[in-house]
Amino acid sequence: MSDQTNEEMHAKETPSEGLPVKANEQIQRSTAKNLAARLPRKYWLPAITGVAGIALGLLMGVGISAGPAENQRHDDALAETASVGAAEDAERLTKQILPRAANDCQADTAFAVVSDDHLSLTIDHKGKEDYSGGLSTREMMCIFDKLGVPSAVASHMQQTTSMDGRQTEAWDNIEVSWSYHPDRGMDSVVEIVG
């Protein structure tokens, strides 16, 4: 084996100059195929990983570009469902405001009448000549406190005289109208609006 020189080994692998051009090209292609078949084996895993990475990247890119539209539709559907649920909850809670205020103040239901699907409360306050009864001032003011009446509205109500006629005030989603006469008391109607 040592008798064989580098030139002889090289001569076996490379085409000789004396061969026709077509044969020389075939030998070069054959040698390239042999090299391609032998050398890439150690590079197969990196090559496969690279190709898989590119393919995964393309699929993710397509998924992401299509994803936002699908995600937006899904988010819109969830928001609509939540909105409907929130609206129903808000309506249910709104309908509890007036009855809860009257109940918390232990107001007699004959003089604190909830009506209009729980959206209005008529308060009959006891006046000097109200022989049939009515809510005490403490019970009436308790109801207004539970409803969160602003101090400016409470002052307006307390300063109303029989000469002022019917008065109206509003806060949050509550509107109250009232009249006052010493003999009949401060009769009022509280309504949930908007």
Rank of each mutant, 00 (worst) to 15 (best):
T5R: 04
K12C: 05
E13I: 14
T14K: 13
E17I: 05
A23S: 09
N24F: 15
Q26M: 11
R29S: 11
R29W: 11
S30F: 14
S30H: 06
A32Y: 12
N34M: 08
N34K: 10
L35P: 09
A36I: 15
R38Q: 13
R38F: 14
K42W: 15
W44T: 05
L45I: 11
V51G: 04
A52T: 14
G53Y: 01
L58R: 02
M60R: 12
M60K: 03
G63P: 04
A66F: 07
A66T: 11
E70N: 10
E70I: 11
E70G: 05
N71Y: 06
Q72T: 03
R73N: 15
D75A: 14
D76F: 06
A79G: 05
S83P: 08
V84T: 15
A87W: 01
A87Y: 04
E88G: 12
A90Y: 12
E91C: 06
R92W: 09
L93D: 09
A101M: 01
A101N: 12
C105A: 04
Q106M: 11
D108S: 00
T109F: 07
V114E: 01
D117S: 12
L119S: 09
D124Y: 11
K126A: 10
K126T: 11
G127Q: 00
K128A: 15
D130E: 14
Y131I: 08
G133R: 02
T137N: 10
R138N: 07
E139F: 06
M140V: 14
M141K: 08
I143Q: 00
D145S: 08
K146E: 09
L147M: 02
L147I: 00
A154I: 07
S155K: 14
Q158K: 08
Q158R: 10
G165I: 01
Q167V: 07
A170H: 09
A170C: 03
W171R: 06
I174T: 00
E175R: 04
S177D: 08
S179D: 10
G185E: 02
V193S: 02
G194P: 13
